[in-house]
Design a binder for these strands. Structure first.
Lengths: 117, 117
DNA sequence: CAATCATACAACCGCTTGGTTGTACGTCAA
DNA sequence: TTGACGTACAACCAAGCGGTTGTATGATTG
């Protein structure tokens, strides 16, 4: 069913799990850059950088737009935000558990001694 | 320099880039679970699940505590938060760029033609 | 047109990953 | 003590990943 979301999460986290790709992402947050622009900044072949860009694009974290013979990449801020949402969702579960414990502790049950502070 | 941070980010994002590990993380957000408890929930060997737990632990996303002969895993909420911070930091760059553009647009710039950028 | 630039992609290679099975060790219950 | 349980880890394997080189295609320039 909603395995698509999990596929998406797989791609996004995997795309972020490489420092070159994170650096590329940082660089295209503030301005669109061509693949050549990006490639000039790393000690690896053009093709390698182009692959990294492709991974980021498949994950939806960047998009490309043709400008003349260049392909300018820019970050997809909404997609990056959606990753934050995934993490927030995780934390939400944790928070609700803390709340549950808190409810237990503050429940009006007189006899139990709730030490364990 | 601070390549250690990048190493850490590599590990964390990589740990999250697998749906089984994300699911394990979800399950230990609300309560400590033994490796066996966790393993019973997946269609793979105990050893495979144990490896996933080890990856999460190396990434600092969970910690384990011995309880009798069990090893109970629980989520490290602070570490999960730190990932959110990494993403926030990215977004921050974007926000500052938006601010910069906004400054340019609202600047009283009569003379300069801001072409060529 | 030809030459060049920017890009895309296929084929390949060594290493890592996610899975398996098997073995070994510490802890608990009889 | 014996046996079962919970865990850890080594060895192995197929598949995927990050890198390379080489080739093909489209757009721009002379």
């Amino acid at each position: 069913m909603e395995a698509l979301l999990e596929d998406r999460a797989d791609e996004m986290f995997h795309a972020l799990a490489d420092r070159t790709r994170r650096d590329i992402l940082r660089r295209v947050m503030t301005e669109g850059l061509s693949v050549s622009d990006l490639a000039s900044g790393y000690d690896m072949s053009f093709a390698a950088v182009q692959k990294h860009v492709a991974v980021l694009e498949r994950a939806g974290l960047i998009s490309k737009q043709r400008v003349g013979r260049e392909q300018r990449a820019r970050a997809e801020v909404d997609a990056i935000r959606s990753i934050g949402s995934l993490l927030d969702e995780l934390e939400e579960q944790w928070r609700s558990r803390v709340q549950r414990i808190d409810d237990l502790l503050t429940a009006d049950e007189p006899e139990g001694d709730r030490r364990t502070r």
